[in-house]
Design a protein around this nucleic acid. Sequence first.
RNA 1: GCGCCAGUAGCUCAGCUGGAUAGAGCAGUAGCCUUCUAAGCUAUUGGUCGGGGGUUCGAAUCCUCCCUGGCGCGCCA
Length: 570
Amino acid sequence: MNLIDQLNEELLKVVKSVFKDLGAEFSDQHNTLVCFEISDTHEHGDFSTSCALKLSKKLNKKPAEIAELISAKLSVPWIEKSEILGPGFLNVYLDIETKANKLKELIERGPNYGKNKKNNKKILLEFVSSNPTGPLHVGHGRGAVLGMALSNLLENSGCEVTKEYYVNDAGRQISILTSSILLKAYATNFNVEGMYEGAYIHEIAQEFLKDHEKINVSLSLEGLSDDKEKKLDQISEYFQINHKEAWEAANSFSIMRILNVIKEELHSFNIIHDNWFHESSLGFVQDPSSDLSKSLSIIEKAGHTFSEGGAIWFRTTDFKDDKDRVLLRENGAPTYYLTDVGYHKNKIDREYDLCINVFGADHHGYIPRLTAAFDVMKNKKQAIEFMLYQLVNLHEDGSKRIMSTRKGEFYSLKELRNELGPDVIKFFFLEKKSDHTMDFDINLAKDESKNNPYFYSQYAHVRCCSILTKKSFDPSEAVEEKEIMKNFDIVNRLLTFPHLVESYAEERSPHSLVHYVKDLSAAFHAFYEQSPVINEDKKIENARLMLTMATKIVLANSFRILNVQPLEKM
RNA sequence: GCGCCAGUAGCUCAGCUGGAUAGAGCAGUAGCCUUCUAAGCUAUUGGUCGGGGGUUCGAAUCCUCCCUGGCGCGCCA
């Protein structure tokens, strides 16, 4: 158990006993109020609690008096002193020997420092799930990077995480993609508005021709509608009826090709999904054993559906949605919504405790209806959660680069990666709170100086490594305790890491870890300047080597969670 | 019109389940290289926390109204 958790346990005991002494009743509601926090400045000790202020009303006593009572009873061997300041804050100071021992422990644990024990919680994390109709763009990249870091954070706190990509390999968009490929292959000059465009379509069409020399298609596309959308559907229909073989071949070929492109891109970011779940595997709604029909009948049996206009609706307005939603269309075909409901039925059956969906913020309207379906279908203890990420604006030389999937001038993730490398992109994406539009400064990402937080943090790790190649920490030798006292800032950051990283996981906030890394790096750079590690005084040297070693470990562990490779040389 | 997210220093952002004097970085200003990488450090300027009300010992944080920006409101996917 880490120090602050131990301390909190003790505090809770003490507070309960104070309640008893005063003849007041302690209810479990008070539990969350009773805890220590990491002090913001040295003057407030190592840990501080404001619980006396919070309980003041309950106990009908002045905060400072309560703090006094708590302080008198609080007996933790490794607390050197405690003091009451301000309106009733109780601040405690750890003794130096304990800190030194904790630092040694940290070094012993190495890569495992900050990791929690397994907790048997099974989590399904769905992220990216971009339609296989084109390469990933920068926005998808943010979701991908975020999902991976979140997964690492959750695994670090002992959860078992399955990373899944939902492949929309059925439906209209895929039909349009297939038509686009076939037209590009067999009717070079036939341009239709709304078809997929771009170099990748051309490439896939060429490869398709090469791989399918036997297939021959001669087109006679006449009498097409003037309506743009109708026209697209007519073309798909035409191929499916008149060139069935070519259609089926092109359909699976293009999905496969594009998925490979997506997979490769994710791999170059070291983002690896455990499962690729295909929409087509959900089956047909006519088949009673399919996930689609199973989920439909559960919702029907639960009495949440009604018929209107020939369609079957889910009364999601009973679940805080702003409109009711169609599950089964008038023509008997499932809506996209129903397929997603079926997919979640599948997740539920795989018995995950928690399903997390990482969504682009433009899908936020989808949350109430999906939650509604999930809540109707789930087993008792299952939960669903959403994590949203907002747009990325690329900035260069003070102006904005344009990105839009629809216009074909989209800025692909690959282009950005080729320009900057994957790790700096990950670091920048993770630095900002996910549910916040972010400005990505390309010039800054390229900068190799302290102005670039990625560079700055890596440089701290490099400096640690550089020193440690010259000399290494010897745990059997004595360390100068004054050094630990002097470097309060860095020591406290190191020792509170396990507690902090755990809370970042609970709060689903990888960005906090990035800020932690920046802060720790800054503390180390300052230490590096004022405290030459290689030193004539062996006790001082060993203490500084210990701090260097511990910093290196914690930085490396943090980088690992962020899915960024720590550099040893620059 | 309804819903979601946001508005904090000149810029980019933390802090938001109420707590101590609102924090970083950049930019600005003034310093520091015969010493483990100056790819760095130190000091310092700069804030009516979008605005008005309210809740209380205490509000950037909670409630309410308003203003501004982004996104979303299909028997599309």
